[in-house]
């Protein structure tokens, strides 16, 4: 049995199919990047993994148990924006996860238990490089620092799966590279299983260990909304970025995505 099994998953919004016939197995420790044109259903797929959308048909199984229909501690999430709590400092933003776990009623820690928890929190803050900003509020942080905080916050709860929804989409290219380093490092050190939605093909190739492309297989030119997307490419990525075969496939994917985008505009 695999770590995650996606079994015959379909998703419709009303009459409109978004995803169809998705079968996949995922090993623990994979870093899967999800790409595709706008509206191809890759974000919908991530929402199903997160538990805020339910498959219309089929199911997703995580370690022999079907996924719960609401978010829980098994799945961590980093959104593009609004991921952190604006009324808490960097340190409090991470500590709150431990307070949720340990104190069901008051959701606050005091005294020695707090000191103990803070050691763990501060160690994590150091790993993501925010020690100097520990007592700052999110609005005092740059976009990149906010995303570092959001990642640390997701990791403190030790999720089985980490979901990243275009986490670096709003960042400058230079900062984006720093974030790639950070995520890669955390992934390798902690043996995380990561799903990341991205618009950036280069990012998808360089970061992931496996790449899924979402695209429509069946087309009806008179009713472009009649069919949903499937996973058209499922690539094991080698760490060697100069792999010529990979580059060729990347070009091919790029061209199919462009066709699809222009169609989406007409639709």
């Amino acid at each position: 049995m695999s770590f995650i099994t996606i079994h015959n998953v379909w998703k419709n919004y009303g009459q409109t199919p978004v995803l169809e016939n998705i079968h996949k197995e995922v090993e623990q420790g994979s870093f899967i990047t999800l790409v595709g044109a706008s509206g191809c259903g890759k974000s919908t797929f991530l929402k199903m993994l997160l538990g805020i959308e339910k498959p219309s048909k089929g199911n997703i199984i995580l370690e022999d148990e079907p996924l719960k229909a609401e978010p829980d501690g098994e799945r961590g999430i980093v959104f593009q924006r609004y991921s952190v709590f604006p009324h808490l400092t960097v340190q409090e933003n991470i500590l709150i996860a431990l307070e949720f776990q340990k104190k069901p009623l008051i959701a606050r820690m005091f005294g020695s238990s707090k000191q103990q928890a803070l050691q763990k929190v501060n160690a994590l803050i150091e790993r993501v490089g925010l020690t100097h900003a520990m007592n700052h509020y999110p609005h005092e942080l740059s976009g990149g620092m906010q995303q570092r905080l959001a990642i640390a916050q997701a990791l403190i709860a030790n999720p089985k799966v980490l979901l990243l929804d275009e986490p670096f989409g709003a960042l400058d290219p230079g900062i984006r590279n720093d974030m790639h380093e950070l995520v890669k490092e955390l992934w390798q050190q902690d043996q995380l299983t990561i799903f990341m939605v991205t618009h950036d093909l280069k990012e998808a190739f360089s970061l992931g260990s496996r790449l899924w492309v979402f695209d429509k297989v069946r087309h009806d030119p008179h009713a472009p909304q009649n069919y949903g997307s499937q996973i058209t490419y499922d690539l094991e990525l080698s760490t060697d970025v100069d792999d010529s075969e990979q580059i060729a496939i990347a070009e091919e994917i790029k061209s199919t995505l462009h066709i699809d985008q222009s169609e989406a505009v007409i639709a």
Partner: peptide
Amino acid sequence: PAEQLIKAQTLTANTWQILLRVLLPQ
């Protein structure tokens, strides 16, 4: 933002904890 409520749930917060620590102070 709904993102904050989802985030809190992935950090294992229950409804009461979300009211107390996420919504009330804001």
